[in-house]
């Protein structure tokens, strides 16, 4: 089939363009990783002596470590909340008759098509208006809202493909609705649920604006990185960047793998 629409010359150009794009995309990240092992205060080439100095000073820096654990906690809780709420909502949108379906679905997925800074600023103005002090629990709820559309869309795609008859069979054999969801639907969706957890975790882990607007003194990792970048250069920021890159990349790739390859598995079964 491929030969029909792409001739040899086109193939060559497209391949070259693809490779060039990969170089452009990965060049800065590779540079950052290289610099994270480079000794010397100023981050300029040529490469001097390799060193672990920046990683050692990173581990010794409590402000980074603490902010990492704060982010870890926030992202874990937000991804769990969003996946649970998202699963329930996706189930309702997929299998139940929801009144004003389009409107309610629109409201739930709307945060996805709004610049994040507007969501953050809206919440900040709201809590100031009603006199709540900025705090971490607000960040948690805000980030849950932010990643909820991802969870709903992902899980709805999966639940849509499961025939209602499975559940109905269980119920006519004496199971309850709740039991059939927990014992039948959830296990079938397990890979998607796992992927959704990872996906929402990575998004929430990297989220900056909401956390920045809804806290005063507690610091998440993106805030700590941001402060370091705008207030002056710390050489260990390359090490931080490399660590964050590898951490997020691993989680994101696993999620993406499950979503993309599970998709093709399903198609195969259908054929």
């Amino acid at each position: 089939m491929n030969g029909l629409i792409v001739n040899k010359f086109m193939l060559l150009i497209l391949t070259a363009f693809f490779c060039l794009s990969l170089i452009v995309i990965y060049l800065p990240i590779l540079v950052m990783i290289v610099f994270s092992f480079n000794s010397g205060k100023y981050q300029t080439l040529p490469f001097r002596e390799p060193t672990f100095e920046w990683y050692v000073s990173l581990i010794a820096d409590n402000s980074f470590i603490n902010s990492f654990f704060t982010s870890l906690m926030m992202a874990s809780l937000a991804s769990i909340f969003a996946t649970i709420l998202g699963f329930l909502a996706a189930y309702a949108f997929s299998k139940a008759k929801v009144p004003a379906h389009a409107l309610l679905f629109g409201i739930v997925v709307c945060p996805l098509v709004i610049p994040m800074i507007l969501i953050g600023i809206g919440m900040r103005l709201q809590i100031v208006s009603i006199g709540i002090e900025p705090a971490l629990w607000l960040v948690l709820l805000g980030q849950t809202l932010y990643v909820l559309p991802l969870a709903v869309i992902n899980l709805k795609n999966r639940i849509d493909k499961i025939p209602k008859s499975m559940e109905e069979a269980a119920i006519s054999l004496g199971s309850t609705r709740i039991k059939s969801i927990i014992l039948i639907l959830a296990p079938i969706c397990a890979p998607s649920i796992f992927a959704t957890l990872l996906l929402t975790f990575t998004f929430s882990f990297d989220e900056f604006v909401i956390a920045y607007f809804l806290t005063n003194f507690e610091v998440t990792l993106p805030i700590r990185i941001w402060t370091s970048l705008v207030t002056g250069f710390e050489p260990k920021i390359n090490a931080v960047g490399t660590a964050v890159f590898i951490f997020s990349l691993t989680l994101g790739l696993i999620a993406q793998f499950i979503l993309l390859f599970k998709q093709t598995d399903l198609d195969k079964n259908k054929a």
């Binding site: 794009s21 800065p28 990185i225 970048l229 964050v244 890159f245 993406q256 993309l260």
Partner: peptide, 24 residues
């Protein structure tokens, strides 16, 4: 999917870190 992942992979890391890496 693998080729798509190659393009999307950096997408999964911090927005800020990616912008910063271009400074270098």
């Amino acid at each position: 999917p693998l080729f798509l992942l190659a393009i999307l992979a950096p997408f999964w890391t911090s927005f800020t870190i990616r912008a910063f890496s271009w400074q270098l």
